[in-house]
Design a protein around this nucleic acid. Structure first.
Length: 509
DNA sequence: ATGTCC
């Protein structure tokens, strides 16, 4: 069993909601998790490795004269879905002073959750699910996928997000499916990355993204979901825990909700690679590269041009992700409209969970697999945030998702979890039982690019086996129970549950 | 997380 149910002996429980991790670097590290949430030992190992970056920052500072502030890792918070990732655990919030760490955002820059509340009821939709399934397979995988962008649309999107894209005209494909775009769809959404707030580096720059190597260039198309745990899903409101907030967000029992989990596809990876290349190129002579291979960048004057290169690529990838999530939600909406007629819908929130949040006080909050959970006073000028920042916690495939309202808890660095958290590593999950997967697929609608019931496909054992391996990695049993995870947030006063959402149909990339 | 095609 890869997950220990016993508390890791290196962790010290402070109360019912929090653990601390004493460490040689003396960085304050706290983990928000109730006693019933399993904590992966490998994730603690990884976190201790990350803390060696505190030494890296000291070595960089010694080699860089004239710094105004002492660069350091100020504080680390882990969310209840915390688990081992690539270099830095997923579910890590890391606040720095005088430095930024590209890897603490992760590869999939501005991966996030889109939630939209419709005025359609699940009862009205149920009789049409077979038709809808066929329609969505067409929209996502046969027709609408890979909607080409003109050079103007592409540059507009990368520079300025959704408004930039639409300024270049609405993208169309042979289906003409994107008739669904309406200007008022974006009313509650900035649709672009906020100015980064760094002295240099802006959200409106544009990197030359021309990709080489013959692979698909995702900067010139829109409408792909991506792989792994990414999805586009139809759900319905199955329970309300906070009537006033739910009402304000347009959620009522039985209402259909659109949820999208997607990121910046290959763009984020390229931007992160740019960050690491720039950090390496600007590395001071005489400072050894760290063993943990985490390369921070100091926020000094001399590093400005290199930082700007990273932040421009970062902003382009982030803007792409927002525009792509908008399109994926629109494709769901278009499918619904095709089977039940026009429906009304309203954005609840677009919540990023892999991003940088610089502050005026010189600190930079890095979230990797953690979502902001600001309180009412933080953003009271915006509609949904009058009730606290919406926190979207997707369940694993087939499991319910939660909507919560953030309380702006400072101990948690205003952060909540972005899912239930993986329990079984990908490799082990892929080796799981076929029968269990088949049982699951019989009772749950999953739309994938491959229709395994198609007789032409069903005979191809190699193809179907590969498809099964991918799906098993995202099966419910590969993830922690979302209930105790969400309950940890509630008990810690990080966020309060507003509504529960039950899946109806999931589209997987 | 990323990619891919039957």
């Amino acid at each position: 069993m890869p997950v220990s149910q016993r508390p890791d002996h290196r962790l010290v429980r402070t109360d019912d909601s929090w653990l601390t991790l004493p460490n040689p670097a003396n960085v304050p590290v706290e983990i928000c998790a109730g006693p019933e949430v399993p904590i992966e030992s490998a994730a603690i190992d990884e976190l201790l490795t990350v803390l060696e970056t505190a030494d890296t920052l000291r070595a960089l500072a010694r080699a860089t004269p004239g710094l105004e502030v002492e660069p350091r890792i100020d504080r680390v918070v882990c969310t209840p879905d915390f688990h081992k990732g690539a270099g830095i655990p997923i579910g890590t919030v890391l606040r720095t002073v005088g430095a930024l760490i590209p890897q603490a955002v992760g590869n999939d820059i501005n991966c996030g959750m889109w939630v939209e509340a419709t005025d359609l009821t699940v009862d009205r939709l149920r009789p049409h699910l077979d038709t809808l399934e066929r329609r969505l397979r067409h929209l996502f995988f046969e027709g609408g996928r890979r909607i080409g962008l003109t050079a103007t649309q592409r540059e507009g999107l990368l520079r300025d997000g959704l408004p930039g894209l639409l300024a270049g005209g609405v993208p169309t494909d042979a289906d003409g499916a994107w008739r669904q775009v309406r200007p008022d769809d974006t009313t509650d959404l900035d649709g672009r990355l906020h100015a980064t707030g760094f002295p240099v580096g802006s959200a409106s720059g544009f990197r030359d993204w021309i990709t080489s190597g013959g692979g698909t260039s995702y900067d010139s198309i829109i409408g792909s979901i991506g792989g792994g745990n990414h999805f586009a899903e139809l759900q319905y409101v199955s329970a309300i825990h906070d009537g006033a907030a739910a009402h304000a967000w347009g959620l009522a029992p039985g209402r259909v909700v659109l949820m999208v989990h997607s990121g910046s596809l290959s763009l984020g990876h390229q931007a992160n690679a740019t960050g690491q290349d720039q950090a390496r190129a600007g590395w001071p002579h005489g400072v050894p590269m760290p063993n943990n291979r985490i390369l921070p960048m100091l926020l000094d004057e001399a590093g400005a041009p290199r930082r700007e290169r990273y932040l421009t690529a970062f902003a382009n990838a982030a803007n792409f992700a927002i525009g792509n999530r908008f399109f994926l939600a629109m494709m769901l909406r278009a499918g619904l409209a095709d089977v039940v007629g026009e429906i009304g819908s309203r954005l609840v929130y677009d919540a990023p969970h892999n991003l940088l949040w610089p502050d005026d006080d010189g600190t930079v909050v890095h979230r990797k697999g953690a979502t902001p959970a600001g309180g009412i006073t933080d953003h009271a000028h915006r509609g949904p945030e009058l009730w606290g920042e919406p926190v979207i916690v997707p369940g694993s495939m087939g499991a319910p998702s939660y909507l919560l309202r953030g309380l702006g808890d400072t101990r948690a660095l205003g952060s909540a979890c972005h899912g239930a958290g993986r329990r079984v590593p990908r490799g082990a999950a892929a080796r799981g039982s076929d029968a269990e997967l088949d049982d699951f697929l019989r009772e749950f609608r999953v739309v994938t690019p491959l229709d395994h019931r198609d007789p032409a496909i069903a005979g191809r054992r190699d193809i179907v086996d590969a498809w099964r391996r991918d799906l098993k990695q995202e099966a419910p049993w590969a993830y922690k129970d979302v209930g105790p995870v969400v309950d940890s947030l509630r008990r810690a006063d990080v966020a309060r549950p507003v509504a529960e959402l039950q899946p109806i149909l999931t589209v997987k990339g």
